[in-house]
Design a protein around this nucleic acid. Structure first.
Length: 199
DNA sequence: AAACGCAACAACCGCAATTTG
DNA sequence: GCAAATTGCGGTTGTTGCGTT
C-alpha cells in the first residue's frame, strides 16, 4: 500500500496533532453513521478526513464496530449469553473476538468488559466455597446454587457440564434449538464433556 | 451535602497479522 | 519475496455514575 511520495516507515497509530480524543459527541456519531451508510468503510485511515471528523481511523472504527453498527445489540446480557461466554472462554481463552462471533450483536469489547466486571468474580465466588459447588441428585434433578433452586429435567433434556475451576462444575440446560451446536462442540473439544440425554 | 470508594463501561494504546504495491 | 500500510485484537486506562459513610 506504499504509494509514491508518501512517508516511509511505520506510521504512528494515530496522528495526534489536532485530532480529538475521548468520548464521542452525538454530532460526531451522526457524521460517522451518515458517512458509512452512504460510502461504507473501505479505508479507515482516510475515512475521518472524508467524513469531516477530527478523529483517527482507529477511533472511528472502534466507535462504529462497538456502538454505531445497526446490528449491535445493546442492554444487559442474558443468562444464556453469560453461560455461552463462560463455556467458550474455557475453550478459547481470551479470544474475545472469536467468542463474540458466537454471540450475534455482541462485540469483543463488550464481552471483555463483562468478563472483567462480572463473570470473573462470579467464577471466583464459585471456587471460593464448597457450599457453592454443584451436585447431581439421583432423581435426575440438578441443584443450581447460582439461583438457589432445584431444576427437574424433562426426559429429553440435554445438560451441559463444564469444569469452571478445579473441582467446580457448572451445569446448564441447553434449549432445544441449541442442542446441535453443543453436540458439535464435543467433537471439537474433548476435555469438555457433554452430560448427554437424560432419559 | 460532601467526600470517598468502587463498579461499569467507553475508549486508547501497542503490537501482531494481514494486505498491498 | 520484501517492506510498508492498514486492520484487528487484546490489554489497559480514564471517566462517570452510584452507593456508602
Amino acid at each position: 500500500m506504499a504509494r509514491k511520495g508518501e512517508r516511509r516507515g511505520r506510521a504512528p497509530c494515530c496522528e495526534k496533532e489536532g485530532l480529538k480524543r475521548g468520548a464521542w459527541t452525538a454530532a460526531e456519531d451522526k457524521k460517522l453513521v451518515a458517512y458509512i451508510t452512504k460510502h461504507g468503510h473501505t479505508n479507515w485511515r482516510n475515512l475521518p478526513k472524508q467524513a469531516g471528523l477530527l478523529r483517527c481511523g482507529k477511533s472511528c472504527r472502534l466507535r462504529w464496530i462497538n456502538y454505531l453498527r445497526p446490528d449491535v445489540k445493546r442492554g444487559n446480557f442474558t443468562k444464556e449469553e453469560e453461560d455461552t461466554i463462560i463455556s467458550l472462554h474455557s475453550e478459547l481463552g481470551n479470544k474475545w473476538s472469536k467468542i463474540a462471533s458466537y454471540l450475534p450483536g455482541r462485540t469483543d469489547n463488550e464481552i471483555k468488559n463483562l468478563w472483567h466486571t462480572h463473570i470473573k468474580k462470579k467464577i471466583a465466588r464459585g471456587s471460593s466455597s464448597k457450599q457453592e459447588s454443584y451436585e447431581i441428585k439421583p432423581n435426575q434433578s440438578i441443584v443450581l446454587h447460582e439461583y438457589n433452586s432445584t431444576e427437574e429435567l424433562s426426559s429429553s433434556q440435554t445438560l451441559w457440564r463444564e469444569e469452571l475451576n478445579e473441582g467446580v462444575m457448572d451445569f446448564m440446560m441447553i434449549p432445544e434449538e441449541d442442542e446441535e451446536y453443543y453436540n458439535g462442540l464435543v467433537y471439537l473439544e474433548s476435555e469438555i464433556d457433554l452430560w448427554g440425554q437424560m432419559n
